[in-house]
């Protein structure tokens, strides 16, 4: 288990089929479109992250809470449940499992604070505690979650990756929790995808910038901390840095390394030599990925999923969320009233 992902419940029970997740979203999608639903979910992940920050959790605790939240919603619709109660309970349970128990009252207090502008949080201690049972049941009592951070750190060490790049990759991992990749892929694959984004996709952008005389490079400097253990919930998103978002549009076709895609639009041959000592050697990295004994297509899939997040993120505005929620939660009663007169007329 803890030493072996392959025998863990995460691997054997919680790497899911996309169809199952799509099935759970069906009801919600009758009320809002997929982008809106994604944004609503992103908003809740943000709430979990915010509370984690305020209560000074390690990133792993936040990540576990988000995974619980996602797992819950692979079996339920947002419409038929209250995501704020689910989120609070996920945080409460994740703290216990990650060995940093918090008083339930603190979490409720923080929820009230975070949801002040969106209907508040009307649940007391006993409601959250009671809901913990339901959450445990939905999680099938499988509570230990693996995260890509550990893999990233190990690989980075192996690659002698520069600190700033490790940090950026770390932020990409933080962002990855706003997508569903943790439901479909093994953590080490997600870690590799984050590296791929940094070292291959992003390096091209990087080199382009450099060749064009681009001045600074802000992504690599986006964090203030240099110790990965203290990197908390910051993501690329959280730093007002849209380089990666731009990247998605400017470089929307990502090619598998070694799949014949390296020649066009690839400035590496000229730039890699000029960038020696920068830690990222694009061509070497492409080769490194090509040599890995993993399914490179899967890494590309994860990469694309994370990058598509950045494009959704571009037109995400927090102020829109209440309206989105309202659409999602459109009253049962109201809709009956709308239908009823017609029915009566027909009869």
């Amino acid at each position: 288990m803890a030493a072996n992902f392959w025998t863990s419940s995460h691997c054997t029970h919680w790497i899911l089929d996309r169809r199952r997740v799509a099935e759970a979203m069906k009801e919600d999608l009758e009320y809002v479109n997929i982008d809106t639903l994604t944004k609503i979910k992103m908003w809740y992940y943000g709430i979990i992250g915010k509370i984690g920050k305020r209560l000074q959790f390690r990133q792993q605790v936040v990540a576990t809470a988000i995974v619980y939240f996602k797992r819950f919603y692979t079996k339920n619709s947002m419409r038929s449940t209250d995501p704020s109660l689910v989120a609070a309970t996920c945080i409460y349970l994740a703290c216990k499992i990650e060995e940093c128990p918090q008083h339930i009252k603190h979490i409720i207090q923080e929820m009230k604070h975070a949801l002040a502008n969106l209907g508040g949080f009307d649940y007391d201690t006993s409601k959250v505690a009671e809901f913990e049972f339901y959450l445990l049941e939905e999680l099938e009592f499988y509570l230990i979650v693996y995260h890509p951070y550990r893999d990233l750190t190990l690989i980075a060490k192996d690659l002698k990756l520069e600190e700033s790049n490790l940090q950026t990759a770390w932020f990409v991992l933080n962002d990855s929790y706003r997508t569903d990749v943790c439901l479909f892929y093994a953590p080490h694959m997600i870690a590799l995808a984050a590296l791929y984004i940094i070292c291959v996709v992003h390096a091209e952008q990087y080199n382009d910038n450099n060749n064009n005389g681009g001045s600074g490079h802000s992504i690599a400097n986006s964090g203030s901390s240099s110790n990965p253990n203290t990197m908390d919930d910051s993501g690329i998103l959280g730093h007002n840095n849209i380089h990666l978002a731009q990247l998605n549009s400017s470089n929307s076709v990502i090619k598998a390394p070694g799949a014949g895609g390296g020649s066009q639009n690839n400035p590496t041959t000229s730039s890699s030599s000029s960038n020696e000592g920068q830690g990222i050697n694009n061509r070497n990295m492409v080769q490194w990925f090509a040599d890995l004994n993993v399914d490179i297509e899967e890494i590309i899939e994860i990469t694309q999923e994370i990058l598509s997040l950045y494009s959704i993120w571009k037109d995400y505005e927090e102020e829109q969320v209440p309206a989105m929620m309202q659409a999602l939660k459109m009253e049962f009663d109201e809709s009956y009233e709308l239908i009823d007169p017609q029915l009566e007329a027909m009869q």
Partner: peptide, 9 residues
């Protein structure tokens, strides 16, 4: 909830 319909669990 003042913004939203009651979320009934």
């Amino acid at each position: 909830h003042f913004d939203l319909p009651p979320m009934n669990m």
